[in-house]
Design a protein around this nucleic acid. Structure first.
Lengths: 254, 254
DNA sequence: CGTGATTTTGACGACACTCAAATAAAGTGG
DNA sequence: CCACTTTATTTGAGTGTCGTCAAAATCACG
């Protein structure tokens, strides 16, 4: 446990959070374990902390641990040789960091977007638990499938949408995910404009311009850059375009 | 089995392929099963066929079957309400169609890019086999993780690269995957320009222009549009940019 | 060999990027 | 707590890339 404290001084004095108080207990794979399994999992887990901007994993490095986010947000990105960056996803409470890939090589860099509270597992111990609990494996498979769908969404966003449509989609996504009502009017963005830009495949300037246009059009208000109040949800949904699943048949080929 | 024949008349008279002759036997999850498991899997599987351009799954439809590609290529795509299309990936021999998601809802449309030979499983039977063979589940998890990585690559391609870089990446990818040597000079593209464009997030015209420029620059030769000879691999690799993993540290944040 | 679909090419316009500077916000030390 | 420094965000002007529309050339198929 000592080892983890260095990531976050505040972790030192902190009492361990009870599993029953943990978001993951109901939302993540923990929810599917029986009491014995949970006890086993808890025994092999260690609470840990990463400060904002801390690197959790680095692209190409071996990783011997797996983390589950308990609180905060992390971003996952790739760096290109020419210095460009692509943020592939933002992960929050209940999400796993480190994947399950056998090789143990990380193709992505994972960085704490906010201060991060996690539950840490030794990769090897976690894998052996997997073998004992086939059901757990199915759950991870379901989680992986969801991840794939999320990536498909992202690909579609990048491949098909204009800048304003991308940001509208992003804001609605953030509104649904972050604390607040479902009809969320106020969204607190835990990431910088640069993070958003690199997620949306655009430059900071372009993203900022769209923010400005949304403000001028009355779609949003921004008391601070990180606080966005969605004042015209219909307009944003209309822009986003990815939301409703099209029911019509493929008119292509055949 | 009757039912499957309608997809492809040619399947009717065809003798069942022996598992030992199947690409998947060595490359896909079949490789990891013991004799008993393979026998069980084989018993519950049915050979099937889809003709070129046939829809295997439709976006939003329930799917009661899972297919493994034995021969040919399929494309996976999403349709947007406005008619735009995003091809999220091309799948080949050894790849699974239909995912394992519990809901059984397909978020993507799957269409045969070439005539397709598959091995069909009832979803329910397949899932019960999963519970019997925990190891199989781990393999699927590994496959899913690979898919996620592939999607990350795609996201990065769409988010960071210019048109010429995208096509260069695509051609090299195709060269590595399709039949032919590793130093493949000649690539036979089994998909149309429209498919490539929708995969690369561009219009047919833009893609065609890049093809033309590559030809003019001597990077490639095209006896026919579907046959591309890579004449200057270094130049293409240089353009692609995604290939080499950057070893340098993140200079961001922290 | 003729027909229809795919692919290529051209001209023009819109969107997003680059570079540069101003403004606002956040962090630091007195 | 305030002035100062540093960083993040916004705004502006000019350019390049890619999309749109239209037409020609090529390819695939019967």
């Amino acid at each position: 446990m000592d080892e983890f404290v260095r990531f976050c001084p505040r972790a030192a004095g902190k009492k361990r959070r009870d599993c029953d108080d943990c978001v993951a207990r109901s939302s993540s794979f923990c929810a599917q374990l029986d009491d014995r399994g949970l006890a086993q999992l808890r025994q092999m887990s260690v609470p840990a902390c990463f400060m904002k901007n801390c690197l959790v994993f680095e692209q190409g490095a071996r990783q011997s641990r797996i983390y589950m986010i308990v609180d905060g947000m992390a971003k996952l990105y790739r760096l290109l040789p020419d210095g460009q960056r692509q943020v592939t996803c933002f992960l929050g409470p209940g999400d796993l960091l480190g994947g399950i890939k056998t090789s143990g090589e990380s193709y992505c860099t994972v960085q704490a977007t906010t201060n991060l509270e996690v539950c840490a597992f030794e990769r090897r111990a976690f894998l052996s638990l997997l073998e004992q609990y086939p059901k757990l494996c199915l759950i991870l498979l379901a989680m992986a499938t969801e991840q794939i769908n999320a990536q498909h969404d992202h690909v579609t966003l990048l491949g098909c949408l204009r800048g304003d449509q991308r940001l509208a989609t992003f804001l609605l996504m953030a509104g649904r995910r972050l604390p607040g009502e479902l009809d969320a009017q106020t969204v607190t963005l835990p990431m910088s404009r640069a993070d958003i830009a690199d997620y949306l495949g655009q430059t900071v300037e372009s993203v900022s311009r769209v923010f400005g246009r949304f403000r001028d059009q009355g779609y949003i208000e921004m008391p601070r850059p990180s606080v966005v109040m969605l004042k015209n949800l219909p307009a944003l949904y209309d822009l986003a375009g990815l939301e409703e699943l099209p029911q019509r048949r493929a008119a292509l080929g055949h």
